[in-house]
């Protein structure tokens, strides 16, 4: 049985009519020992079926280790959203854990963003990102019932689009308790930057820029 209702499929088909460039979803899954692997794969496949501009590839995390390493995937379920087609590009946009609840909006918005190729960030933030000389890893911890969280996730993903040195991960906090414990996550959204700096809440981009500068100082 489909996860997406018929009326929601119709709505998304209309949204996806505006897609400019092809988008590829890559899902890393495993038949056993992964709580939401099946549902994460189903979400990607059902979304991809709604537009000929969206394609999906599914890999078994264990049997396709070399591909997982190529995309720097270290936990599952994982979803990569990247530009597809002849000019394929991996921006470093990742979802770790199921993109359900409010996070379903993040995956749809990411598809629209990646297809447009425009992060929509301010000139100030773009200028900072283009001058980066070291890597920035943003891990945004979320729960599916958090209405504030997609704002933080999308901001990390917009930033990832602006520089090959920036990676933006959504991390579903309840599915990865070892990471939640490691980073003392008891409230979401919480963005951890380069292991050292963190930001609570859904911050505007200019506030996040301050934290990013702190992380690479």
């Amino acid at each position: 049985m489909a996860l997406l209702k018929e009326q929601d499929q119709q709505h998304l088909r209309q949204e996806f009519a505006a897609l400019e460039n092809p988008v590829k979803l890559i899902v890393f899954t495993q038949p056993f020992e992964c709580q939401y692997c099946t549902e994460t794969r189903m979400i990607a496949e059902e979304v991809a079926a709604l537009s000929d501009k969206i394609s999906v590839e599914v890999y078994d995390f264990d049997n396709h280790r070399e591909i997982a390493e190529q995309y720097n995937i270290d936990k599952i379920p994982a979803t990569v959203i990247m530009r597809g087609g002849d000019e394929a590009k991996d921006y470093g946009i990742r979802f770790y854990g199921i993109p359900s609840g409010y996070e379903f909006s993040s995956i749809i918005e990411d598809i629209m963003l990646v297809s447009s190729g425009d992060s929509g960030l301010s000139d100030e933030v773009r200028a900072w990102a283009s001058n980066l000389t070291e890597e920035v890893h943003m891990q945004v911890f979320v729960t599916p019932t958090c209405p504030y969280c997609p704002q933080a996730v999308i901001l990390a993903h917009r930033l990832a689009m602006e520089s090959d040195l920036i990676r933006g991960d959504m991390v579903e906090a309840i599915e990865f308790p070892h990471l939640s414990n490691k980073y003392h996550v008891q409230g979401v959204p919480r963005t951890v930057i380069n292991e050292t700096v963190h930001m609570e809440g859904a911050a505007p981009e200019i506030m996040m820029l301050g934290k990013l500068k702190e992380a690479v100082a």
């Binding site: 609840g101 379903f104 995956i107 749809i108 019932t145 997609p150």
Partner: peptide, 13 residues
């Protein structure tokens, strides 16, 4: 899976 929550969040309806 609460996908409706996500869709309502998109504001395109």
């Amino acid at each position: 899976l609460g996908l409706d929550l996500g869709l309502s969040n998109l504001g395109a309806a």
